[in-house]
Write a protein that binds this DNA or RNA. Structure first.
Lengths: 213, 213
DNA sequence: CGATGCATTGATATCGGTCAAAGATGGTGG
DNA sequence: CCACCATCTTTGACCGATATCAATGCATCG
C-alpha cells in the first residue's frame, strides 16, 4: 500500500507542493473541483454546511490522507487547515489521464479511498453512541493512533483542533466535550496538560470506555 | 459512470451469479475475503457487530451497489440479505489482476467506492440528527429515491426491512421508529399502508422535515 | 387456529442540549 | 514588558427528547 519511488516521482511531476497557513480554506463546497490533494504534513478538517447553516464535521485529515473527491465536478465539503499544512496538489486534468493509463498507480488511489470509506463507517458508529464520555474516549484513541503513526510514541497526544471542532466531529456541543474531558480526567484516565495536549494515563480504562458500546 | 457492454461482458466472464434467499448471510465479519459482490437485485443490509454484542447498521445495499471491500484479507462487516437477492460474485483472485491490467474498468470501481464514501458521509450526518422524526423523514426520502431509480415511480415506497433494521440504520430504537412513523402519519405526510409499504402523501412537507437540520 | 416473532403504545428516567455567565488563554499594541 | 481585549473554554441550572422497561396488539406461518 505504499507508493513506489517511481510512482511518487510521477505524481510529483504533475503536482506541486503548497503550504497553506492555519485556518486557510483549501476549498469550499460548490467550488469547481479541479484538483485532488494529498496531505504531506499538518492537520485539516473537512466539514459540510447544513441547510440550517450549521456545520457538520466530516473528518479530520492527517498525513497521507487524500481529499478533494468531487461529485459532478464540484466539491461537496469544505476543507480548512487546522494547523499550518503541506499539501501535494494534483490537478485533475493531469491526474485522471495518468491513472487511466497507469492501473497500478490508480490501484493505490482505490485502496486509499477504500480506507476512507471504512474510516467514515467507523465514524458513523462513533457518532451513534449515546454517551459523551465514550465518544470522547474513542476520539482520544483515534488521535493517539494517528499520532503514533507519525511520531512513534503515544503518551502525549496533541489535539491541535479546538474544542468546538472536536465537538463537531463527535456530534456533541463543546460544553459536552468539556464535561466529558473533565470526567475522564477525574477518573484519572487522561490528564489535559494544556488545551491542546492530552496525556493518557490509563490506556486500558480508556480502551474499555471506548469499547463499551 | 456506466459500464460499457464490453466491460460488463468481461466482468461476467470472471464472476458468477448467485441467488441467496432472504435472511441468508453473504459473509460474516472476519471471514476470509475472497470475492467482491455487485447487487443485481434485491436488498441487503451491512452491519457491524460491536464488542457489546449489539449490531450497528452500516448501510443498506441496493441494485448496482458493490460490497465486500476487505481489510487485510478479511471482511469487516456482516452482510445479510433482507429480501431474496441476485448478486454477481467476483472472485478477488481474478478481479484484482483484471483491474490492474484494465485501468478503464478499475476507474469504474474507483468511482463506485467514491460514491460509497459520500454515502457514508451523508449517513453520518443523518445519524447526527437529534430528532427522530427528521431522521425518519430522511430515511423515507432515501428509500423513495432508491425506489424511483429502479422502478420509476415513487409514491408507494416499499420498506422491505424490519423496523428494527430501520431503527438500527437510523440509530434509534424500534420504539422511536414506531413513534416517528405515527408522527408522520398523524401529520398526514405519510400513510403506512402495510408494515412494509409507505405511501408518501405530502412530499414537500417530508422534504422540509428532512432538510431541517 | 394457535404460536412465535414483530410492532405498537404507554410511563418513567436519563443524558446531553440550551442558555447564561464566569474563567482561561493568547495575541496585540502601547 | 505589561495590560487589555477577543476568543475559546469551562462550569452551572434547567429542560426536553429519546432510551428504557413493560405490556398489549397484530400478522404470518406452520
Amino acid at each position: 500500500m505504499r507508493l513506489t519511488d517511481f510512482q511518487r516521482k510521477t505524481l510529483e511531476d504533475i503536482g506541486e507542493r503548497v503550504h497553506p497557513r492555519a485556518r486557510a480554506v483549501i476549498y469550499d463546497a460548490g467550488d469547481r473541483a479541479d484538483a485532488v490533494f494529498v496531505v504531506i504534513g499538518g492537520v485539516l478538517k473537512s466539514y459540510r454546511k447544513l441547510p440550517s447553516g450549521k456545520r457538520a464535521m466530516s473528518t479530520f485529515l492527517f498525513r497521507h490522507d487524500i481529499f478533494g473527491l468531487a461529485e459532478r465536478g464540484r466539491y461537496l465539503n469544505c476543507v480548512q487547515a487546522v494547523t499550518p499544512v503541506t499539501l501535494h496538489e494534483l490537478p485533475l486534468a493531469e491526474l485522471i489521464p495518468l491513472i487511466k493509463r497507469d492501473a497500478r498507480l490508480q490501484f493505490k488511489f482505490l485502496m486509499k479511498v477504500t480506507q476512507g470509506l471504512r474510516e467514515a463507517q467507523r465514524r458513523a458508529i462513533l457518532i451513534g453512541r449515546r454517551d459523551a464520555i465514550g465518544r470522547m474516549a474513542m476520539f482520544l484513541i483515534m488521535m493517539r493512533r494517528q499520532h503514533r503513526l507519525t511520531v512513534g510514541h503515544d503518551w502525549d497526544v496533541p489535539l491541535p483542533m479546538s474544542r468546538a471542532d472536536i465537538a463537531s466531529f463527535l456530534n456533541l456541543t463543546s460544553e459536552s466535550v468539556s464535561r466529558a474531558s473533565r470526567g475522564l480526567q477525574q477518573r484519572g484516565i487522561v490528564k489535559f496538560e494544556k488545551r491542546h495536549l492530552a496525556r493518557i494515563l490509563d490506556p486500558a480504562s480508556l480502551e474499555k470506555l471506548a469499547a463499551a458500546v
